[in-house]
Design a protein around this nucleic acid. Structure first.
Lengths: 200, 200
DNA sequence: TCTCAAATATACCATTTGGTATTTTGTTTC
DNA sequence: GAAACAAAATACCAAATGGTATATTTGAGA
């Protein structure tokens, strides 16, 4: 078979697709190898033929979960014409996200950051890089909006970017733990207020 | 011995004081009974004589961690004369909190909410109640400020309260995972901006 | 179609897990 | 000081844990 992907590459992806939700829901420590074999229908031998160890699967599962979210956000963002509307996509995305339970288990960055910040430096670094990349993305959009004359020149891009991320992640935490969709809605209104304040 | 507390009550507290940081750092799933015996110097028999099971210790440890934080906040808040300054205490407290690494492992509400929201309903309920009580506290302060003429009458207490909590918790997550104290500082500036907007 | 490597399954391992029944120790109370 | 009770330690358990060496199967290329 001269397929696009090799056999091992296909099973690697298969394993990640079947286990990514589990890691995101139960966490690294809470997910066992039995969970992985049960979810995939594969055996430990097969999993350890494609991954070095449990941590290696968790790292790849995080990358998988993250890329799925990033892709979904970027698809919407490309269609937004103004920088304000591009930034507004975050608010829209997470408004939908909490309603469709996507991704299963909540935001992988948040989940991984909280569990790993004191226990697993590799996972922690992954989450940290994701946050910094997200922040840079917002900062770049704000700066571009300032350069284009769409936004005020006296804005603090770092503060705004970090506050948007904090509001979203904090809002997700509140909404999920209290089973209250409207809690996130209200927090997202503050995100939108921050965006309005950017405008000239 | 006719002490204030009974023997069992004293060992219960001793166990909680010695293990609260561990649960807050490693999480419920990541903390083993061996961790508990090692930290206390006691044996499993002793721990299970004072608690029904591991979950029971975790629940009590959460209560302990939470009460320590609440007490520290309330002490400062009582000394603040105006409602604005009372609300400002949150910003001050978490500014200090991240610098003194108090509590060890970060915010217990955040940690517990993220781990337990899909895995442990008892712990989840504890975290949810803590969030709702915190929210009510802020809402009450805002409403009192409105009633006293200190704050505007057109404020949305729910939205402001939830946004303050989201900013703080999201900011803690960002700062801890990226090892960046200034990230939290910037997010707290937005909290302060929300407070300023409350004023008449 | 045969071969051979790659992929997967099997069978096993030591250790750790949460938990308990029983014994020992410590503390009151009479 | 002995009896009665509470608290803690000991010794144990089955099950689950992450991981590995080896056997078997599979499938792709010559």
């Amino acid at each position: 078979m001269n397929n696009e992907l090799s056999k091992s590459e296909r099973t690697r992806r298969f394993i990640l697709e079947k286990t990514a939700d589990i890691f995101n829901t139960k966490g690294y420590a809470g997910t066992s190898l039995a969970d992985l074999t049960e979810a995939t229908g594969l055996t430990k031998g097969s999993i350890y033929g494609n991954f070095a160890n449990k941590e290696d699967v968790a790292l790849a599962a995080f990358d998988h979960n993250l890329s799925v979210v990033i892709q979904a956000v970027q698809e919407r963002m490309q269609q937004a014409p103004t920088y304000y509307q591009k930034l507004f996509v975050y608010s829209q995305f997470y408004y939908d996200s909490i309603r469709t339970s996507f991704p299963v288990g909540g935001c992988p960055i948040l989940n991984t950051a909280i569990e790993a910040d004191d226990t697993n430096s590799l996972l922690k670094n992954r989450a940290a890089k994701a946050i910094l990349s997200w922040k840079k993305n917002i900062v770049d959009l704000i700066k571009a909006g300032v350069a284009s004359g769409e936004f005020r020149t006296d804005v603090d891009p770092d503060q705004t970017a970090l506050s948007i991320i904090a509001l979203i992640e904090g809002g997700i935490m509140i909404a999920r733990v209290t089973n209250s969709l409207t809690s996130l809605d209200k927090v997202l209104k503050t995100v939108e207020m921050l965006l309005v304040q950017l405008k000239v």
